[in-house]
Nucleic acid binder design. Structure first.
Lengths: 203, 203
DNA sequence: GTCTATATTGTGATAGAC
DNA sequence: GTCTATCACAATATAGAC
């Protein structure tokens, strides 16, 4: 991500990503990361000083990927329902690349809620913009009356939840058939978009 | 829960619930639980032998609450859309009582996926029944054609996700206004039900 | 920069007095 | 049953040789 990292640092970071995303901060050890990256603990501390700092690097990267690119899509000059389709497709595609991120980010945010204040400042995310746009569409009569807060959260829920609940859904509904679950996630790109559109289309 | 526990054991269990739900298995220590329950570590081991066993008791209880009572509601002799309303209302109400449970259960299931096999056997949950019923409704023309798997997961997503994503939603959308977020969750009982119904109603 | 060895602290668990 | 004291081990982190 940051091009200022050298070869070894990138190696450590990749291992840290793998281990932290799998086990979380509390479940991961510096030994695991050292082993995974083929070096030893001392070197890890030489480059990143502490487990905390290494974690911070991994978390920030994950958090960035977790935040959907709402603005870019919803400012485009296309039909509102096309915006929904574009957003849902792009976001689920993004999550398919890093399926562990949602549960990881949510768990770590809960473990350290103070972080959220810092993140809001630095992220520059403006949910207000999206909410205002939803209100505008309702006003124009393009969509049925709906509370914009719920619409936003519904969109996010339908996209993100299946990734966070993978162990449960895959186990109980797909009998641990990994491939079936994977295909299910892909098919959600279309299914979720149409579900939302039908729910808000004037009728 | 289990009436076979005596006074002290219940005291320890309540503390364990609090600490494990807050910090997860890896983030919690037996010392925290001992302090929280006003006794000491030794006594904790006297009653529960190990951290693992104590955790298991807490997890199983949480998992039970996490599983929605789908069957009871969906076998009732009422209109299909009323079933949706009844289920969403009851499930969100249940989660409002234990808002920490979703993220806790999902995280711990990921940490120990082997558990899922055991849980499926002992739970007696039959998602197949619900799926079959959804198919039946589609066949009868009561609802628009929709993949029953997606409908089931959509229902669960819309109910559960806001609880799991509390730190994020409360922080970014409600500017850390706890009361506003709480009210939002309550209003979802109605909002989510109507959202789903509109999405599947023939039009 | 990279290693081995070690310091230091914290954790789960037990022994043993009362 | 309940406590204090302690063991054995694992964790983060650093010192110091090369």
């Amino acid at each position: 991500m940051n091009p200022n990292y050298n070869e070894t640092e990138l190696q450590i970071l990749e291992a840290a990503r793998k281990v932290f995303l799998q086990y979380g901060f509390d479940g991961a050890t510096t030994q695991m990361i050292a082993t995974e990256s083929g070096i030893n603990k001392a070197l890890l501390h030489y480059y990143f000083r502490s487990k905390d700092r290494l974690f911070e690097a991994v978390f920030m990267e994950a958090f960035t990927r977790m935040i959907p690119n709402l603005l870019k899509i919803f400012t485009a000059e296309i039909d509102f329902f096309e915006k929904i389709r574009a957003f849902v497709g792009a976001y689920i595609d993004a999550l398919l690349q890093y399926p562990q991120i949602p549960l990881f980010v949510l768990h770590e945010l809960k473990r350290n809620p103070d972080r959220i204040v810092q993140l809001i400042k630095s992220s520059g995310i403006r949910p207000e913009f999206i909410l205002e746009m939803f209100r505008g569409e309702v006003g124009k009569g393009n969509i049925a009356p709906i509370d914009p807060y719920h619409l936003l959260v519904n969109m996010l829920s339908l996209c993100i939840f299946p990734f966070a609940a993978k162990p449960m859904i895959q186990g109980f509904i797909f009998h641990n058939d990994e491939a079936a679950f994977q295909e299910f996630l892909v098919s959600r790109k279309e299914q979720v978009a149409e579900f939302i559109i039908k729910a808000i289309k004037p009728c």
